[in-house]
Each structure stands twice: as structure tokens, then as C-alpha cells.
């Protein structure tokens, strides 16, 4: 390793270990956070079942992936999971609509304080969903990524650029970022430009007036669940392709997702995305060991001996929690002015 200051290699190192992982993790959180935002805006409760619903969607993806590989129905180079996502979205939609019919609709009809009752009901759904996933798939971690693992690997990058530090672009990272961009673009187009999307915003804005305008509340709710199912399944599948699947891990994703939504401003889709990246970058930046990075940037005499890691990775969920508490104390409406959660 050279003893002079080497900015290019330092940057390559950061890109490989911080920027790319944080971008893809942030994209996964953003999709989950958008699902929570949609449920909050239309159905008016904070959906605690979000993490476990992502596990449910991913479970269908895993089962279908296994089936397709067993049959030999794969396409070289493309993860089979990607091919089965549309079917998994349908499966998750059916599950969510069923849960709405069995659980949430009742509380909508009797017009109770929707957020607090919805939260409580969704905690129940969370446990049921998590139980179903563990019952069918077991609690142990599994990987379901097949096909080409890298768009380009560290070795290829080094050979191409001649740099000491390599950057690898994993297929899962590339897919995550691309699909997230496409999905978010579609969602915003849908909400801003289509008649159904506008009706959803109208319903969220002023429910009684939406009813007076002839907007069918049942249809709005159904379409919301379809969108939520798509976001949830895709977020879960991409997270699983990237980091592997484990039911407990998905359950715990609820915390960074809620932190994203609240940091960004509850009910604001743009805020949810901004919040997701804030949370993901905080998590990765604070748990990254900067030793090598500093060795590239500092003269020999100042080279660190320790790992220079601010927080151990086992505490990464604490970061979401601290962000959450700080925002609620200092700016409860979030960065992009959202609503303040209350009991109504």
C-alpha cells in the first residue's frame, strides 16, 4: 500500500463499501416506506405489518424461484426471482386484500379512531403474517439469488482501471436501483396524472368530499392495497437478493422503514424517499470501518491503528431509533412538512 495521499483509491473504496450499498439499501427502504406512506394516507393507520408483509412477498418469490429452477425454466444471467416477481405481486395482493376484508374493513366501517385502532390491528396482522412465513419457510436464513452475481466484479474493475481498490457492481444492487427508480417514477405518474391516482389523493385529502364527488371508497382502498402489495413484494425481493432472506431480519426492517417515513414527513411520498436515503446512509456511514480509507488519505505518520468504526454493526438498528427519536423531539412534522401522528 502506498504511503502517499491517494484520493482516487479512497473514493473507489468508499464507492464500493459505502455509496453503492447505501444506495441499494436506501432504495429498498424507500419502496417499503412508500408502502407505509400509502397505507397511512389512504387507510389512515401506521402499518406495523410492513416488515413481515415484505417477508411474505419474498416467501412467494422464493417458493416460485425454487419451482422454476426445479423445472429448469430460467434465463441465463437473469436472477430467476426477477421473473417471478409479477406472480408474487399477485399473490401478495390477494393476501393483503384478504386481510383487509377480514380485519381492517371492519374498523373502517365502524368509524373508530383509525390510526390507533389500525395500528393495533396491524400488529396482529404482523404476528400472523410472520407466523405464516416461518411456518411455510422456516426461520433460518436462505439465499435465492441465481444467475450472474456481478455486472462487473472487483477483479474486472481493477484490470480495467489499473486501480489498487476495486469497485464491484452486484447484479442485485444494479437491479435494486434501476427497479426502484422505475417503480417510483410509475407511482408518481400514477398518483399525479391518472384519474384513479387523483381520486386516491382526493380521498386522502378530504374523504367526505371525495365521497360527495362520487369516488368509490372501496375501489380506492383496493387499489391502494394493490400498489402496496407491489411495492412490498418488490422491496422484499430486492432486499433478499441483496442481503439474503431471514424472517427476523425482515421483521426488524420495520424500524428503519418507520424512521424513513417519519424523518421525511408522514404522508409525503417524496419525504419517504428522502428519509429512506438519510437512514440508509447514516447506517452505512456510521458502521463503516474507516481505517483503510484514512490510510489512503492521511500521511504515514497519521495512519490509524484502530478500525476507526464509529458504531459496531450489531448496533445498526439503534441508529434508526436515534434518528426517529431526534426527529420526533425536534421536528415532528419531518423534513418535508408532513402530518403529526396522533390518535385520530
Amino acid at each position: 500500500m502506498s504511503d502517499s495521499i491517494d484520493i482516487i483509491n479512497a473514493f473507489a473504496l468508499m464507492t464500493n463499501f459505502v455509496i453503492l450499498p447505501a444506495l441499494s439499501y436506501g432504495s429498498q427502504l424507500a419502496l417499503g416506506a412508500l408502502a407505509v406512506t400509502l397505507v397511512y394516507s389512504i387507510l389512515r393507520f401506521s402499518n406495523f405489518a410492513q416488515g413481515d408483509s415484505m417477508a411474505f412477498g419474498t416467501m412467494i418469490v422464493i417458493l416460485l424461484t425454487g419451482f422454476m429452477i426445479g423445472k429448469g425454466w430460467t434465463i441465463t444471467g437473469i436472477p430467476t426471482a426477477l421473473l417471478v416477481i409479477p406472480i408474487a405481486v399477485i399473490g401478495t395482493s390477494i393476501y393483503m386484500l384478504t386481510m383487509d376484508r377480514l380485519v381492517y374493513r371492519h374498523y373502517r366501517r365502524i368509524k373508530v379512531k383509525q390510526n390507533i385502532v389500525g395500528i393495533t390491528a396491524s400488529i396482529g396482522v404482523m404476528f400472523i403474517t410472520g407466523g405464516i412465513v416461518r411456518f411455510i419457510l422456516g426461520a433460518s436464513p436462505q439465499r435465492f439469488e441465481d444467475g450472474e452475481r456481478f455486472i462487473f466484479s472487483v477483479r474486472e474493475f481493477k484490470a480495467f482501471t489499473g486501480l489498487e481498490q476495486g469497485i464491484a457492481l452486484k447484479t442485485s444492487q444494479f437491479l435494486t436501483i434501476t427497479i426502484a427508480i422505475l417503480l417510483v417514477a410509475f407511482l408518481f405518474y400514477f398518483l399525479q396524472k391518472t384519474k384513479t391516482g387523483k381520486a386516491m389523493r382526493a380521498y386522502s385529502d378530504n374523504t367526505e368530499l371525495a365521497l360527495l364527488s362520487g369516488i368509490d371508497p372501496d375501489k380506492v382502498v383496493q387499489i391502494t392495497w394493490l400498489l402496496v402489495a407491489a411495492l412490498t413484494t418488490i422491496a422484499g425481493a430486492l432486499y433478499g437478493l441483496d442481503k439474503g432472506f431471514a424472517p427476523q431480519q425482515y421483521h426488524l426492517l420495520l424500524l428503519p422503514i418507520f424512521a424513513s417515513v417519519i424523518v421525511g414527513g408522514i404522508g409525503s411520498p417524496l419525504g419517504a424517499i428522502a428519509g429512506a436515503f438519510l437512514v440508509s446512509f447514516s447506517e452505512v456511514l456510521l458502521t463503516y470501518a474507516y481505517k483503510k480509507f484514512l490510510i489512503y488519505l492521511l500521511p504515514l505518520s497519521m495512519h490509524p491503528n484502530s478500525l476507526v468504526q464509529l458504531i459496531g454493526t450489531e448496533y445498526k438498528y439503534a441508529i434508526s431509533f436515534v434518528i426517529l427519536v431526534t426527529v420526533l423531539l425536534i421536528r415532528p412534522t419531518g423534513l418535508l412538512k408532513g402530518k403529526v401522528i396522533d390518535g385520530d
Binding site: 387523483k198 381520486a199 389523493r201 378530504n206 364527488s213 369516488i215
Partner: peptide, 17 residues
């Protein structure tokens, strides 16, 4: 009115049916 929608969108929603 629908506060976070534009004037034109408010009118469009009126004609939803």
C-alpha cells in the same frame, strides 16, 4: 375543497362520475 390538489384537479374530481 381538496386542499393539496390544484384548482383544476379539484374541478376534475367534481366531475369524477
Amino acid at each position: 375543497v381538496f386542499p393539496s390538489m390544484t384548482v383544476e384537479e379539484n374541478l376534475e374530481m367534481g366531475g369524477f362520475l
